[in-house]
Every structure is written in structure tokens, then in C-alpha cells.
Design a protein around this nucleic acid. Structure first.
Length: 210
DNA sequence: TGCCAGGCCGGGT
DNA sequence: ACCCGGCATGGC
């Protein structure tokens, strides 16, 4: 599946961000939200000088909310970003090399303790900002794997993640690309309703790729 | 127009 | 341990 997607779509160049902190901000902002909306919010944050922990914390909450608004859930996300920035600054001085000096299984547990950071957000940060060999599962991954019979209907995040990490040799580069490719193919061919699979590189419904 | 987007949390069974 | 409603904007 990975090879087929890579051939069909080519390199995805993920995660689009100029710094580790910007990537982490994007990971929180993109929760259940179109990336286009996130880009608008990030542009506002950049304009406000808030793409660093200190810069973000310097904003009033009203101003922070105005920056976040295009990304939706803006009250929640503004609060979560502020908490995240405070944690990142206090514990790691806002330095990615300090953050990722922590062994990733332990760091993952710490990230999950933060309000507003669940498994996908934590794993995205570990993989794309930290280059740790952790596969990121998202709604597209689950939907595509189910439609191809790779997992059963009840498989949860951890089971799906285990499947990939047991079958694909640990490699941050490959995990990054595979996740990005699944999103790319999912957006085009595997939406919740209206899956138009005719020309999908993974084959047509009902899927037989195995 | 309605549906959907790169989730997560809290309260209820 | 699940299940569900709430959270919100912008594009097609």
C-alpha cells in the first residue's frame, strides 16, 4: 500500500512548518479542521509574532483568540495553545532538542497528560517535529484500512498503530510519508460519505488490496 | 444548502 | 470501558 501510494502521489513534503514550535501549533490547530483554515490562523499568529512560545504567551487571550479563530474551536484551541507553550517553555525552555532528548515513549506519556493533546496530536509531534519512528493514525487511516479489510470495524487507535509499526520497519521518514500519503488518498477517494473509488490507486470498492 | 475537515474532552451509561 | 454531544470556522 505504501509503495503504491508513493508511486501514485510522490513525495508529500510533510509537515509544512518553518520551526518545531510552528509544527506543534499546527498539530493542535488542525484537530478536526481543514488545513486551509489552519494556515490562515498560522498566518495571523506569525503576523502577531506568536510562532514562538514566548511570543505566543505575550499575547492577550483576546488577541490570541482572534488569531486562532479561522481554525475553528477557537476558544478551546487558544487555551490549549497557551497551556502547551507554557509547558514547553517551563520544562524545556522552548527548545526542541531538550524536548526530544526525552525517550519518546516517556515523552508521549507526558504529551498525553496535556489538556488538548490526544494520541494523534502527540504522535504527530513525536514524528514530524521529533523525527521519532512513531506512526500517526488518523480518521483517514482507520477508514482506509477498514475498507481494505486490514483491520476490523472496532479496531482502535493503538491497534491500528501497532499493525503498521509491526509491519513497516521503524523509520521516521517512511512513517512520515505513509501518513501523509494516506491523508492525500483519503481526501480524494475515501471521504466519510461518497467514496468515489473508481480511479483510486488502491483499487475500487469493494477493495481487494491485501 | 448542508456536509465536512489531518480530534479531544467531559459527562453519562 | 464505551458512547455521545459540544466545540466553530470556512470551502465546496
Amino acid at each position: 500500500m505504501y509503495r503504491r501510494l508513493a508511486t501514485a502521489f510522490g513525495p508529500q513534503h510533510w509537515w509544512p512548518a518553518d520551526s518545531a514550535f510552528e509544527m506543534m501549533v499546527g498539530a493542535i490547530l488542525t484537530q478536526a479542521t481543514n488545513w486551509h483554515n489552519v494556515e490562515q490562523a498560522i498566518a495571523r499568529l506569525r503576523q502577531a509574532g506568536a510562532l514562538s512560545p514566548r511570543g505566543l504567551l505575550a499575547l492577550t487571550s483576546a488577541r490570541l483568540r482572534r488569531c486562532v479563530r479561522p481554525a475553528g474551536y477557537f476558544r478551546q484551541k487558544a487555551t490549549r495553545l497557551r497551556q502547551y507553550a507554557r509547558w514547553y517553555l517551563r520544562r524545556f525552555n522552548g527548545r526542541p532538542e531538550r524536548l526530544f532528548a526525552v525517550a519518546w515513549p516517556h515523552l508521549r506519556a507526558q504529551l498525553l497528560e496535556l489538556h488538548g493533546v490526544g494520541p494523534e496530536t502527540a504522535d504527530s509531534i513525536l514524528l514530524y517535529a521529533g523525527e521519532q519512528p512513531v506512526f500517526v493514525v488518523d480518521a483517514y487511516t482507520q477508514r482506509i484500512f477498514r475498507r481494505h479489510g486490514l483491520i476490523d470495524a472496532t479496531a482502535d487507535y493503538d491497534q491500528t498503530q501497532r499493525l503498521v509499526m509491526q509491519r513497516l520497519r521503524p523509520s521516521a521518514g517512511r512513517y512520515k510519508e505513509f501518513h501523509a500519503l494516506l491523508v492525500a488518498v483519503g481526501k480524494r477517494y475515501c471521504r466519510r460519505r461518497d467514496p468515489h473509488c473508481e480511479s483510486c490507486p488502491l483499487g475500487s470498492w469493494p477493495h481487494t488490496l491485501r
